[in-house]
Design a protein around this nucleic acid. Sequence first.
RNA 1: GUAGAUAUAGCUCAGCUGGUUAGAGCGUCGGAUUGUGAUUCCGAAGGUCGUGGGUUCGAGCCCCAUUAUUUACCCCA
Length: 481
Amino acid sequence: MEKPSIPQGTRDFGPAQVARRQYIFNVIRRTFETFGYAPLETPTLENLSALTGKYGDEGDQLLFKVLNSGNFLVKERRGEITPIVTAEDLDAGHKAVLPKIAEKGLRYDLTVPFARYVAMNRGTLTFPFRRYQMQPVWRADRPQRGRYREFWQCDADVVGTDSLLCEAEIVLMMAQVFNGLGLTDFTIKINHRGVLRNIYQALGSEGTETDLFVAIDKLDKIGRDGVSKELLEKGFSEPTIDTLFELLSVAGSYPEKLSRLLAGFVTAGVEPDGLRPAADSEDEGTAFYKGLNELAEVRDILQASGFTQFDRLEFDPTLARGLSYYTGCIFEVKINNVQMGSVSGGGRYDNLTGSFGLPGVSGVGFSFGVDRLYDCLESLDLFTETGETPTRVLLTHFDAASGRAALPLLAELRAAGIPAELYPDASKLQKQFKYADAKGIPLVVILGPEELAAGVAKVKILKTGEERTLPLGEVVGALTL
RNA sequence: GUAGAUAUAGCUCAGCUGGUUAGAGCGUCGGAUUGUGAUUCCGAAGGUCGUGGGUUCGAGCCCCAUUAUUUACCCCA
């Protein structure tokens, strides 16, 4: 017989796990709704063409493709058979064959399907449109710690405004969720694609932007030497790399880093996005860089909103993030006292709906990785007690007569909203008690021949061992209290 | 895609330089207690040692292949 198994990188969730996961979902959902986001669900399958090209080359390779149904090799119409995959296609390799045999794919994230939805429903939506979405996504990645092939994201996005209030609210929501889950030691990292572009410009535009971003994103992981080595291989010169590290080494608080980078960009002669008139003189004004400026404003809005956890918010100019659709602010959150990749991330995308025929709609959003949050909470032992079953009361079963006699009480309990079950078999009472104990059911009602004769029921509280005898008619009332 | 580790009872793992009938703890089931759980005591069931080859008088142990799991890289939630 074949050993039962499930595909690599997927998991079953037992009752206890589901209860814990629901707890996480509820904290997130409550936060999203508090900020005015409305729920949305989209299909598991998307047209492959809607997914490709949005996540960079690496991302495209991680898409799960779904084979066309039926005979995907030939098309038969009125007896006429034409090949779908030709010999030339096969010669050209899998990349030529793929789009002909797989037209659908599993969603890779929730942001791109959302952009597709917005473009399709532009006529009926009221902008700015805020939506949240909690659904599984799939990536054909090699599974390892904190990485699964099927995992759940909780996404909140707002489109149709480029107000930085939205960015600030993302920080507020992130903090609210982590605080709500009891995860106190977190760091929200923030950066801006504009800052990264300015850094690239400050280097005199050597090499390619992507190579630069990919390399510096790894700074905290492989260190300065590792990044230098990688950049040298990508064609950056040594003096350029020195300039880079000088820029990246800015230290201090969030605002201090901003002003130091500003000075660095001016020194390097980076073309500013404009000039801001000086406050009281007739100077030529100070250089104005959109990225730095927006980061400063996000912080101002947070301050005005009563946000206090600035020690948890870090401006990190090395944060890059791989998803290629980001254009403005970018976010990433790490839980510090546990070894786990980022548990949340997001950013602004100016033109994601453009690829679906709706240009000029800016959006910003972020996402929580539920599975990683779960792993963090578990390794930090932060789950409060969650039972294996919702059942609160177990009715015991002695024989056919007592089992039958318990049914009215069972119905009464359920009608009163108390989750209850009757042990289905007339097993030994010992066994029924063991069952209640193993499942964490707090109350056992004993309704045997003796009790029935007297018109009473015994209610036992398992935790304390306390047992009370009540008239049958008062049981539900006593348990409701 | 690249590199490493692991695979023995339902679960977690022992198993000596290759040597007779492969062990423990937990869990399960039964009994002590025929109407009272979690504690205690007694007992039982449960394994073709991932799979397929090979070396050997003899393989859970050594060699080869294969599959699965897992860790790191890449990338990401």
